[in-house]
Amino acid sequence: MKNWINVFMMIGFLMTSSVYAVKSGGPLEFKDSEQEALYNTMLYELRCTVCQNQSIADSNASLAEDLRENLYEMVINGANKEEIKKFMVDRYGEFVLYRPNFSPSNYILWIGPFVLLIVGIVVLRLNLRSRKKINRTNELSAEESDLLADYLDSKKEKE
């Protein structure tokens, strides 16, 4: 029984761990739940530029630690999502955003897959249509049935 309690406590701890994820180690205090929600979203929206495939929430790099602290201070001081993003992009470039902006240099990222899908569908349809033209009916033309009859006759004669 005691083990189960420990397990549940552990799970509970892991689920809230992002709130603890700042240098000081203690739980963070926010003015309201909106601020807390903003902090927790932004943790996963910002990339740790040292360990490039981790967000600053996931990373143990000391830079990620510093950025979490920075983020916390910005949130506490009432910065909104756009202000936080701008702060990070001004220093680290757009690469710091895990979800790239919908800007001209990123159009190919956002639209590219859909363009490919449409091209694929068009090519497939053209292909199917041309195939239909080749073999529209199952019936043989007069020429073909003559040929077939000749062939069958010749086989019979051999037997």
Binding site: T49, V50, S62, L63, D66, L67, N70, R91, Y92, G93
Partner: peptide, 10 residues
């Protein structure tokens, strides 16, 4: 490391 952040040091 605050100035490092200002300079985008990574």
């Amino acid at each position: 490391g605050d100035v490092g952040i200002e300079w985008g040091v990574y």
